Amino acid sequence: MEKFSQFRDKGSGIAPFLPIPTESAGLQLPFHIFLFVCRVPLLLIFALSYFLVLQWMPIGVLGRKASLWCILGLPGIWWVDLQIDGVKKGSLAKNSASLPQAGSIIASSSASPIDALYLSAIFDPLFVASYPSTRLVQPISLFTALCRAFSRPQLNPPAKAKLVDLKTYLKQNPSRIVAVFPECTTSNGRGILPMSPALLTVPPRTKVFPVSLRYTPPDITTPIPHAYFTFLWNLCSKPTHCIRIRIAEPVYNTSKRTPEPVVAKTSAYATNHFDTFGTDSAASDADTLVGSEELEGPTTNEERAFLDKVAEALARLGRVKRVGLGVKEKIAFLVMWKTSRRRR
């Protein structure tokens, strides 16, 4: 894999886009094949039943969660190791505020389709897709969130996508949690990619919960698009899988933009009209994100600090390092990966 050395982070040497190899089954290969043959049909039947029928029926939140837990349980995802910052084991009931609640944001790591499935089974959030080129997000369904884990990364949202900022979306859905994957694409779980500027539109009093999900064995991550069979084999051929979930203390957006105040006019002769031209609309222009390219990425130290807080929390929770490789580098990596596969 030395030919992909240019896609290793210069500081840490981590290659976040290379697929994690599966351990050889050895003498247990017949048993793994048996599990795969038995589980895949059942998993497909349950998944299709939920996404085609059950999710549209009035089964309530508990019914949806129970259905999703059945989907998670079929491939052997039984053991869930959950830890929350600042909460001792056995005292979760007394510290319910440490968990994401209605009106808050989940900023989750992105490595596998299981990420969205697990978050939906626990918190029943609304999902949004983020992009590295805009502060706006695209509301999506759970099924679309699963499909995005298998799809190619995108620098820009689709042309006909309905976009909204997180502040507005929270106002439209005050009784729901909103889940966003700020890395904008999947990795192999060995590093945290740069954050999307979409988080900068979160209101200052809204709780943002960094959530890290890691898997054992780690080969059910999907950094390579369209690897459906490989994912199914790694997921369904092994007896059990473990999910390690870590939830950090909430982070608040302290980077609220404050435009410079307008200089008071003392008289028509003492003040030049051109000195204050356009300042009356500065506040509204700062809040208008659509079509404003200069406001897409972080432009102030406060905005960079807020994104760094979320990224550092995800890296600490996952016991990994931050990398400087993002969506643009992954697109270039996939081009080289596809070319190398063709030559074999």
Rank of each mutant, 00 (worst) to 15 (best):
K338D: 15
D308V: 02
I224S: 03
L126A: 01
T254G: 06
T254C: 12
C184S: 06
P204K: 05
A102C: 10
Y252M: 02
L29V: 02
F143T: 01
E293A: 14
V310K: 08
D81N: 13
S109Q: 08
F181I: 01
V180C: 11
R344A: 08
R214H: 13
L52T: 06
P113H: 00
P298N: 03
V87K: 02
I220K: 00
M195V: 02
S284T: 13
L43D: 03
R319E: 15
A315W: 09
F274Y: 09
R152I: 14
A227M: 06
T216F: 11
V40C: 10
I71W: 10
A25L: 15
F51I: 03
E312L: 12
A332L: 14
V323I: 13
A116P: 10
F36C: 12
T299I: 12
N301T: 09
N253K: 06
T339R: 14
G326I: 05
S196I: 05
L68E: 05
F229W: 13
D81Q: 07
M57F: 15
S175N: 14
R244T: 15
T230P: 05
L117W: 09
W79N: 07
F143E: 00
A159I: 11
K162N: 12
I245R: 01
F229E: 00
L136V: 06
P261K: 00
L52F: 15
P217R: 00
N234L: 05
V137G: 05
S292A: 12
N272W: 13
G103Q: 00
P58K: 00
I245M: 14
P75E: 08
D115I: 09
P182F: 08
P218K: 01
P210I: 07
L136E: 15
P204T: 03
T300A: 06
P19S: 04
L27T: 07
P58E: 02
R341Q: 15
I77Y: 10
D165P: 10
